[in-house]
């Protein structure tokens, strides 16, 4: 394992305590992902995959251990620094799409730019570019309710890419999609990984699909990394 990885964790643990009960979601996970790598993450339900993803994405902070991304120790970041990290360094994609229903596809894609000092014209122009990249330019004025699941997920991908991040974190992006659409989505991610040197970390239950595209695979169980393998 490469300890000078692009994304690296050291003894990363997350313990949730609700009342007297403590749940160890992640237990001393050591991980190193090289730049431009496509990492597939599998594991049974409740094994800690989403917990790991939220920590890497800066949405949550570890109980103990460290996270290094591009040489920065993000586990030490303040909440404002984490917000900027989420804005510029990573793009996150979720199973539930998590796009805003009242916004059009274009507005959803442009949303992250709203928080940085970009003019409206620039925002919309860049968002259109991104939508074109995921093949949805013709649907830019449609709202999520008018789009299929796969199309919504593509909107989410376009949004994740708008700040040109180096890392894409995808938490079961295909979980709500049929196998045909799932494949299309993974192909988009794989394409980005190959052609734009994006580091992709993707969670999926569909091991075959994942194995087909991923450079490396890990399996989580009860908060531990129990298996590591190279993809095809």
């Amino acid at each position: 394992m490469d300890f000078n990885g692009f994304v690296r964790t050291e003894n990363l643990s997350k313990v949730y305590s609700s009342g007297r009960i403590q749940v160890v979601a992640l237990d001393r996970v050591n991980l190193s992902v090289a730049k431009g790598c496509f990492l597939g993450v599998t594991g049974t339900s409740g094994s800690g995959k989403s917990t790991l993803m939220n920590l890497l994405g800066g949405l949550d902070t570890p109980s103990t251990g460290e996270i290094h991304v591009q040489g920065k120790r993000i586990s030490e970041f303040t909440s404002d620094e984490l917000a900027l990290y989420r804005r510029y360094q990573v793009g996150m994609i979720f199973q539930a799409f998590n796009i805003i229903p009242s916004y059009t596809a274009l507005q959803n894609v442009a949303l992250p730019l709203l928080f940085s000092d970009v003019t409206k014209l620039q925002r919309l122009r860049r968002a259109e570019e991104m939508l074109a990249k995921v093949g949805l330019h013709s649907r830019k004025d449609h709202r999520p309710g008018e789009l299929s699941g796969g199309e919504q997920q593509r909107v989410a991908i376009a949004r994740a890419l708008i700040h040109r991040p180096n890392i894409i974190l995808a938490d079961e992006p295909t979980g709500n999609l049929d196998s045909q659409t799932s494949r299309e989505i993974v192909e988009i991610l794989s394409d980005l990984n190959r052609n734009q040197d994006l580091t992709v970390i993707m969670i999926s239950h569909e091991e075959h699909l994942l194995a087909e595209f991923a450079d490396e695979m890990i399996r989580l169980q009860d908060g531990h990394v129990v298996e590591q393998s190279r993809g095809d």
Partner: peptide, 16 residues
């Protein structure tokens, strides 16, 4: 509620 969560996830600070 969810919209706020989304905005934070894509990089909105508490101040935003």
């Amino acid at each position: 509620y969810k919209e706020i969560g989304i905005m934070k996830a894509v990089g909105a600070t508490n101040r935003d």
